[in-house]
Each structure stands twice: as C-alpha cells, then as structure tokens.
C-alpha cells in the first residue's frame, strides 16, 4: 500500500516535472560527429522511472552548447594533459600506459563497462581503481589519489574515447552484492535533512531546489567540468558533496560505500551514451 502511494506520488511529481521546467527536447551531437543518446527507456531494474535523461537536458542552452564542440569544452584541455601522461613512462618499470595499451582510441568501450567485477582483484573496481592497479602492479608507480587531478584527467580521456557508446554495467553475478549495497545507499535518507538520493533525483527531477534545476543524477557524463568550480569533477567527489549537503557525515572518495553507489547509479543510466567529459553547472 505504501509503495503504491509512493509510486502514485512519484508519478504526480514526475508529471509536474515536465511542466515545471523538466528536461528539454534538445538533441546532442558532439563535434557534428558523435551522436549522444541523452534520453532513452529506463533499464528494467529501475522500477520508478520510465525514461532516463542525461543531466545535459537540465542545463541552459549556453551550457549545453559548451559541450557540443571539443574546442568549447574546457574539460578537453585536461583530456589533452592526460594524452601527454598516457605516453609518459612512470614508475620502476619505466613503462607508460601506451606501452601496453597502444593509443587511447583503442580503449573505446572500456569506460562503458565500468564499474565492474575484477577477477584478479576479487572486488568491484571503478575505472580509477583499475588504473591504480595497473600503476602499482604493472608500472611500479605510485597510485593516484582518488579523484585528484591526474586520475580525473585520465578518467576523462578514457571517457572521451567511448563517447556515444551505451553505458552497460552488470548488476548481477559477482557484482550483484555490491550493486545491492549501492541501491540500498541510494534509497537511504541521510543527514539532518533526511534526504536520500531518490528524494531529489527520482521524485523531483525537473523541479527546482532553490535555484538549482534538479537532474536525475545520472553519471554518464562524468567526469564533468563544472562551471561552479571551473574544473573536472569526479563522481565520488560529487556524491561526497551531495551527502554533505544533507548535513550528514559524508563518505570519502574511493570508499566502499561510494564504489557501491557508483556501480548502482551508473546502472541507472544503462542505455544512455557515455558523455564525459561533460559540462554542467
């Protein structure tokens, strides 16, 4: 009974969202070349939504335009830096990423499957975790600090070569337990304000919270260049900020909680295109 009421309430709010300034009808093609799927049917596991939308749809025309050309998108300067880092040898083995992985373009498709279960690691790994495993185990280099400059730049590079490909992460199998934990976190109310991710991003997307136009909280566009801090931002940093804004003790980037949450939130976007590095507010 309670679920029905909640579902009904969600439907009403969802309908209002379209009127209240919900997602717009624009379409996104980057460099007049890469078609980005920014709206599509919600994946089967997502019971409370029919359609999923990229955060791109909730930004104004100027911000949307910044993402349409790789020379308008400031995030791409940092992709350029990662391209340099890709070929630079580092660590005791004197290797660079290029030595094993050839050129960055050959990594197309990799981003779309992360986070994923790692057999060799016996854990669900995010892209940054996998990069650090390569660095420490194969390059003999220091791991990058989670969501710090070099790691974020490289995540942006790997995302950029997968743009246009559908996000597709596994929600079952060995990753299933982590996925369930992420789902539980998504629907848990945190903090003095007692807000869960779902309260804003599932029940109120399209509405305004003060002056912010709420999106569905999809992460297909991460890392994202935020106008607010004029730099690339990673998913865990964003999760941390959101949880902090509920006036809760928040979790750390790289923590097990955020790895689980990243897997779950990414799966809510299965079917949208990889879009990073995107431009957001």
């Amino acid at each position: 009974m309670k679920t029905t009421i909640l579902a009904a309430a969600a439907l009403v709010l969802g309908a209002q969202a379209a009127l209240a300034g919900g997602p717009d009808d624009d379409t996104l093609t980057i460099n007049e070349d890469i078609a980005i799927v920014t709206r599509t049917d919600a994946p089967a596991h997502l019971e409370n939504l029919d359609t999923i939308y990229s955060g791109w749809h909730f930004r104004d025309d100027d911000t949307q335009a910044m993402e349409m050309d790789d020379f308008d998108n400031p995030g791409m300067i940092f992709v350029d830096m990662a391209i340099d880092a890709w070929s630079a040898p580092e660590g005791s083995e004197g290797k660079s990423c290029a030595d094993c992985h050839n050129d960055p373009e050959s990594m197309a498709g990799v981003r779309a499957g992360y986070p994923k279960w790692s057999e060799e690691g016996g854990e669900v790994r995010t892209l940054q975790m996998q990069m650090n495993a390569c660095r420490t185990e194969r390059m003999g280099a220091e791991p990058w600090k989670y969501d710090a400059g070099a790691a974020i730049n490289m995540e942006a590079l790997l995302s950029s070569v997968s743009r246009g490909m559908p996000v597709n992460v596994a929600t079952d199998g060995p990753a299933g337990e982590t996925w369930e934990r992420g789902r539980e976190i998504y629907y848990t109310r945190y903090g003095l304000l007692e807000l869960s991710c779902a309260n804003c991003h599932e029940q109120n997307f399209g509405n305004y919270i003060r002056a912010d136009h709420l999106s569905q909280g999809q992460v297909n566009g991460f890392p994202t260049y935020r106008l607010k801090n004029a730099k690339l931002n990673g998913m865990h940093s964003r999760f941390k900020g959101c949880v902090r804004d509920t006036r809760a003790e928040t979790f750390a980037p790289g923590s097990a909680e955020f790895v689980a949450l990243e897997l779950y939130v990414t799966s809510r976007g299965n079917g949208l295109s990889v879009e990073g590095p995107s431009v957001r507010n």
Partner: peptide
C-alpha cells in the same frame, strides 16, 4: 546571478 540549491 543566483545562489544555487544543493549544488554540492
């Protein structure tokens, strides 16, 4: 120029 909501 507005001050946002929970911009994080």
């Amino acid at each position: 120029v507005t001050i946002g909501g929970c911009g994080g």
